[in-house]
Write a protein that binds this DNA or RNA. Sequence first.
DNA 1: AAGTGGTCTAGACCACCGC
DNA 2: CGGTGGTCTAGACCACTTC
Lengths: 242, 242
Amino acid sequence: MSTASKTRHKYEIVAAGIRATIADSLGPNDALPSERELMEIYNVSRMTVRAAIARLADEGLVYNVHGSGTYVGSPDLFAKAPKLTSFTEDMVSRGYAPSSRVLEVSRVAAVAAVATRLGLAPGGECTKIRRLRLADGNPMALETVFLPGEVLPMEEFDAKSSLYGQLTDRGYEIHRAEQEIHAVTLDEDASGLLAVPLGSAALEIDRVAVDRRGHPVEYARTIYRGDRYSFQMAVSRESGDK
Amino acid sequence: MSTASKTRHKYEIVAAGIRATIADSLGPNDALPSERELMEIYNVSRMTVRAAIARLADEGLVYNVHGSGTYVGSPDLFAKAPKLTSFTEDMVSRGYAPSSRVLEVSRVAAVAAVATRLGLAPGGECTKIRRLRLADGNPMALETVFLPGEVLPMEEFDAKSSLYGQLTDRGYEIHRAEQEIHAVTLDEDASGLLAVPLGSAALEIDRVAVDRRGHPVEYARTIYRGDRYSFQMAVSRESGDK
DNA sequence: AAGTGGTCTAGACCACCGC
DNA sequence: CGGTGGTCTAGACCACTTC
C-alpha cells in the first residue's frame, strides 16, 4: 500500500493504478477494463494506457488477446521475467537474509579467459574479488568476480557495501549481461567452503555484465549449491524476428 | 537475403530496413540515423519508427541512449534473449542435428507434482512421453513430457514429427513457460541412457508451458548432460517495476 | 454488428547528452 | 545550445473476437 510517490510519468501512475485494481478485485484470467475505458478512468490518451499495459505485460502480470481484451496473468508466472540481479537482490527476493565472507581481494593480470570476456589485452590489470555468499547464515554460493582495473581498483573496494552500488557510484552502471549456466560437480576446495560432500552437484553461472554502451564491467563466476539453489525464469515464445 | 515479403505492417518494413542497414554498413556501437531521420527515410510517423526500434531493442540488436542516440548492440549479446524453444529448435540453433529415441508413450494418472503443475485434479488422465534426445547422433538429454489427456491423447502422438507442431495443430499453441533449472547428479538409469559415468553432473530443466490464456499445456522435465550442454541467456537490468 | 486490441498519423513538450 | 530519445495527445482505421 501507499507506494512511493515518485511516479513522474503518467503511464507509471496508470500502471500503478491497474496494479492496485488487480490486487484489490481481480483474479487470474479476469478481464481488465478496456483500453478505452481506462483512458476515461485515468483521463489520459490511449497511447499512455497502452504504455502502462505494455509494462505490466512485460512483467507477466497481464496479457493481451487481440480482439478480446486484456487479462490478468496466472500467479505462477508473475515477476519471473529473467532479470539481472545481484546476489543480494536475488536472495532478498527469495526471502533469505544475505551475507558475505570475503576470501580474497587482489590485483591480478587477466588470464586469457578473463581478458577475452572483459575485452582487455591479455595480462591486463584487473581486480579479483572472491567471496563466500551466505543465505540465512549458511553457505549458498562461491563467487569470483573480475573487474577491469579502471572500473574498480582493489584499494577502492568496500567489502561492506554492495558491489553493484559501488560500480554505479563510479559511473559504471550495469545494463545487461550474458549468462551461461553449467552443471558441475564440486571439487575439494569448493565443497569444503560450501559445506557439502565432495562430488555434489552445483550450478555454475558465468556472467559478463556490460554497461549501456556494451563495455564489459564485470565477469563473475558463481557456483551455487545444487541442493539449495535453482534458477527460475519465465520465457515466452517469439521474441525473435519471426 | 531477400527475406519473406510477408511484411504486413509498416513497422516491420522499417525494422527490416534497419536490420539491412546494420548488416550492410554498421558495426557494434555505431549510431543509427536518428528517429526523425528514419521518419523521412521510410516516410512514416515517429511512433512507427519507435515501434520498429523497440522490436529490435527487444532482440538486443540495438540499444537506446537517452539524449544521445540509438546504437548497434555488441555481437556477443545478439539473439540471446531467453526464448522458449523446443529441443529441436534449440539444437538446430546450436548447430547440431537433433534426433530422438522414444522410450515410452503411455496414458498415466497424474501424480500430485504433475497434477499441480498442469492444473489437473490429482489422478487426472495425462499422456506421458519419454524420449532420449540426441545431437549429432550422441545422447544429449533425457526428456519426460506430461500433457493433459485432452491436449494430446497418447494414440494421437506422432513420434516422427515435432511435438510443438502437433500441439499447435490441435489448437494448443504454447505462448509462455516457467522454467526451473537445477543441478543434479545422474543415477544409474539416467547415466546409462546418456552414456556418461554414474554421478556425473547434469542440468535438469523443469518447464510448465501455457497457452495465451494461461492454461497449462505441457509439463516437461529434461535432464541435459552437463559435459555437453549449457544454458545461455542475455538478461537486462530493470525489467520490473522500478 | 459491436467491442476489443493493433497499428498509425501529425503534431507537441520534456529530459538528457554533448559540444 | 541544438540534437537526441522519452512521453503524451487526439484523433483514425484495421484485424480480430464474440455474440
